[in-house]
Design a protein around this nucleic acid. Structure first.
Lengths: 138, 138
DNA sequence: TATTGTTATACTCTATAACTATA
DNA sequence: TATAGTTATAGAGTATAACAATA
């Protein structure tokens, strides 16, 4: 018998994990897209909001209220680029970084509990393969 | 360094696979939910549309136009249950079954091409783990 | 004239509530 | 009165188009 469709398994699984994350994000008062932005900015500031939107798979128009919220909460900074005053340079604040760390710790702990149904070797194999697939865009 | 969040990898991956399937489904003139229904009915008829909706993770109200389309296309049958004339027994037709098979063959071929970035042993490990996780609802 | 960010608008998907027909 | 199916309606999420500021 043929295996179940990949998408048919990944879809519900993703939705279930997202449902696990929602209460954590809500407890910290940050939206899912807000969290995605904090993750993206953690490494380095990003020049131009459109670039940020594209890199996290969002639309630039729907990112704006998210950035407004994050900025109002003091989690990110939006400073005009001196070289091109149309553009904004986006960077995470210390508060943003600490919120990001707290949320990510809780989320990954939750995920670990979820992954615990797999034997350790399968668990590792799954994560390894998933990282490869997630990075592959062809 | 901590691994990327699970959901952050699964989400985009799922979306990408879905995007690969969309043209295939369109070519066969069936919607994603319509395909999900055909898959679910392939094994056995289902009594009650609400039960079907729940079992594929859909809402019973948004399933109705889907069933209408499938029925109009002769892919499923909706017969009143003699024992309880409020309820409908849903079953797939021969045409539905053959469409389902054709679509699934193409979709899985597409997916195989996608999975080909993984070495064979990783590929198997990934599928095994995924089946376990997808079946686990805790 | 083109581009960045923004706002306003429309569209899609999904869920809630009200209706009908049977029980 | 309760339930299966249906319809109508409203809500979230998303994308498209128009706008203001700067280049």
């Amino acid at each position: 018998m043929p295996r179940p469709d990949l998408a048919a398994m990944l879809g519900p699984l993703g939705r279930r994990l997202l449902a696990l994350e929602r209460p954590i994000l809500a407890a910290h008062g940050v939206s899912m897209w807000g969290y995605a932005v904090l993750l993206r900015l953690a490494d380095e500031p990003v020049r131009a909001q459109a670039a940020l939107a594209e890199s996290i798979g969002a639309d630039k128009t729907r990112l704006i209220p998210v950035l407004d919220e994050l900025q109002a909460a003091g989690l990110i900074e939006r400073t005009p680029d001196p070289a091109d005053r149309r553009a904004r340079v986006l960077s995470i604040t210390a508060a943003g970084r600490s919120l990001r760390d707290a949320v990510q710790t809780e989320i990954q702990a939750q995920e670990e509990r979820y992954l615990a149904v797999l034997p350790p070797d399968q668990r590792e194999a799954f994560l390894t393969a998933l990282r490869t697939l997630a990075g592959f865009t062809g």
